[in-house]
Structure formats: C-alpha cells, structure tokens
Design a protein around this nucleic acid. Structure first.
Lengths: 186, 186
DNA sequence: CTCTAATTTGAATCAACGCTCAAAGAAAGG
DNA sequence: CCTTTCTTTGAGCGTTGATTCAAATTAGAG
C-alpha cells in the first residue's frame, strides 16, 4: 500500500463508506455497496482493508475527531465559539455528522470499545463547554456551570439527531436559539 | 389467529422483537434471534406475521404511541406534566424508549413512510409543549413560546439519545435541570 | 527496459439471511 | 368423539452477505 494508485483507491473507498454509513447506518452498509460506489471490486477492497469493520471504524474515528476541531487549543474558546464550531461541523460535513449521531445509537451494544470511546468523548466535550461557561460567567457556581454545560451539549445533540430525520431542519437557527436561552438564564 | 395459544405466542414474539430492536436496532434484528428468544420456530413466526418488517413495524408503532400518553386529553397539561410523562416513559419502558430513539436514526433513508410519521409525530409533540408553555407564560410572544417548546423537545431527545450510550445516565435529573432553566428564562 | 512489489481482477467459498411448505399436533364447538 | 380450524414443526429453498485467492495487470525504482 505505497503506490499512489493504492492511496487514491483507499480514499475512494473511505468516501463511499462515509456516505453509505451516513445514509444507511453502521449495520446497513454492505461491502458490495461500498465497492459499487467506489468503482472497485471486492478483492481490491480487501487489499486495502482487513475487514469491513475496519473500514467503518476508520470512518467512525474520522467523525469523532471532526466534532472537536483543534483539540490542542485550550482555554480561550467562548461558548459561542464552541457552538459555532459544532454548527459548522453539522453544515459543512453533513455525511460525517450523520455518522457521528449514528455511532452512539448503533455502536451501543455492538462494540463496547466504541461505546467507551463515545462516553469519554462526551465527557471531554462537556468539560470543554463547562470551562468556557465558567470563564464567561465566573459568578456561576461550579456545579451549576457543569450542569448547564452538559444540558447544552445534550440539546445540541438533540438538534443534530433531528436533522437526520428532517434534512431541511434549520440547525444553525436552533443552535443559536439555544445559546440565547443559555445567556438569558445567566 | 383466534385461539389463546396464538395470541400468547404473538405476544412473546413482540416482546422478543422489542428487546432485540432496542439492543441491536431495526437492521440488526434477525428472524432467528427473534425466534430463539421467543422460543418459537420460523414457521410459527410466519403464521402470525406476514414478514419480519411487519413485526418490527408493530413494535415501532407501539414505541411512537407510548411517547405521548393520553393523546385525547387536551389543553390542561403543564410543561412539568409533559416532561414528567416523558421521563416516566424513558424509565418505565427502557426497551420501547430505545426503540423510539432508534426509529428516527434507522428509519431515515430506509422507509420514507416511517420518516414522514416521525416528522409528523415531532410536530404534534412540539405543538403540545408549545400550548403548555403559552398557557403557563401568557406574556411570552407566540413565536418565542414555539421556539422554546421545540428547543425543549429537542433537548429531551438529546437526553434520551445519550442514555442509549450510557445506561447509567440520570435521565430524570437532567430533564429536571432542563425544566428549571426553561423556568428561569421566563 | 527490467524487475519487483503493489494493485486489480473476478470467480469461488461458506455462512447467514428471510421466507416457504407439507405434515404433524393441539384446541375448541357440536 | 369427531371434525374443523388453528398452531407448531423443521427441513429446505433461493439470495445475499463477508471474505479468500491465484492469476493478470500496472506502477515505479534502478
């Protein structure tokens, strides 16, 4: 797997996997569908990936990583920045964001490793929102800030979930409304 | 399908389908698994249901119907009542509530009929929350009440979604927190 | 140009899936 | 009882799933 052709094929397979998982879920995605969409035959797929599961897991990792951009950058994000980043993720990467929501639902009960990863991811995410909230409203009690941060993250996921059902759903508008309410509370 | 035995078998099959869909999703549920768990052989399954899809669709309808209890009763629910009813649904019917969350995610792209049903269900639900909110805070502008009602419903779904990932997640506590914030805004 | 390693092909394997069916086995009504 | 209708059995059908492999092809280093 060192020649250019191989890497290009790998990319086409991942792109196909991405859109198919977004559309049909982790379970509903078949090798045949991936190969058809990528313009590749099964043998070629298995030259690049050891199994269907590995290809899907690669896409899953992409999705989780794409939710929190710039993970190294710490301590200066505002709540607005964090929400805006999530909205941008939802709007600019519709396939990956659909994958992201499907992970929690499909991954649970299937792969404990995946479930653990999602729980950790959620905690980190809440931590980041919580820090931003405390920075922004220092008068807020510690536990109160954490509670409101988690509520906000959960509500954002609720918005993302609904967009899978209704693709015309105005994600940005609702996320903004959420932020306004959060500000009104403080 | 008139004898007692048949009805009992039908119930065992539906119970098995319910728990398997809750655990493995609409796609991940197989006839063999249903039959094993129900203590029944395939022929018996097909004596009672025309197809796997029909059995699953029956459970799906159950789930959607169970979310909004007492649909005839109109105009007197408070926001607290509605949230409490949803929390009760999540806690007392864990299997059905997992099915409920999976529907939106799995149903989209698979069955347009199911997707349409979910969109309608969501609108009705938001309408009910919105009416309760207007009743409770008459000074609120019409559009504002509707917006906050939808935000609340979405956030509740976010909470339910997270419980699929983390079964220990304290649903009641977070739902209550949500309600407090909503009250603080008004 | 040549040689090697990477890539692609496409048929073939094997398991699992949804589903069918004829025959055997209960349950009620008369 | 006996008859009719409903229920259960379990082998088996056709299809599709993931995966393998030897052979053919192509890309790139020297």
């Amino acid at each position: 797997m060192r020649y250019k052709a191989g890497l290009a094929t790998r990319e086409r397979i991942l792109a196909a996997t991405r859109s198919l998982v977004a559309e049909n879920g982790l379970e509903g995605t078949t090798i045949k569908a991936i190969c058809d969409q990528a313009g590749v035959l099964p043998g070629s797929f298995y030259n690049l990936f050891p199994s269907k599961e590995q290809a899907i897991l690669t896409v899953v990792r992409e999705a989780i990583d794409a939710v929190d951009p710039d993970p190294g950058h710490q301590g200066t994000d505002t709540l607005q920045d964090l929400v805006a980043a999530y909205v941008r993720f939802l709007e600019e990467q519709p396939a990956l964001s659909r994958v992201y929501i499907r992970i929690g639902v499909s991954g649970a009960g299937q792969s404990p490793e995946l479930t653990g990863r999602m729980v950790r991811h959620h905690q980190e995410r809440v931590g980041r929102f919580s820090a931003a909230m405390k920075r922004q409203s220092p008068e807020l009690a510690e536990t109160m800030a954490e509670r409101r941060a988690e509520t906000l993250v959960l509500a954002l996921n609720g918005i993302a979930l609904h967009r899978i059902i209704d693709p015309d759903f105005d994600v940005a508008w609702h996320a903004h409304a959420l932020l306004e309410d959060a500000a009104a509370v403080s």
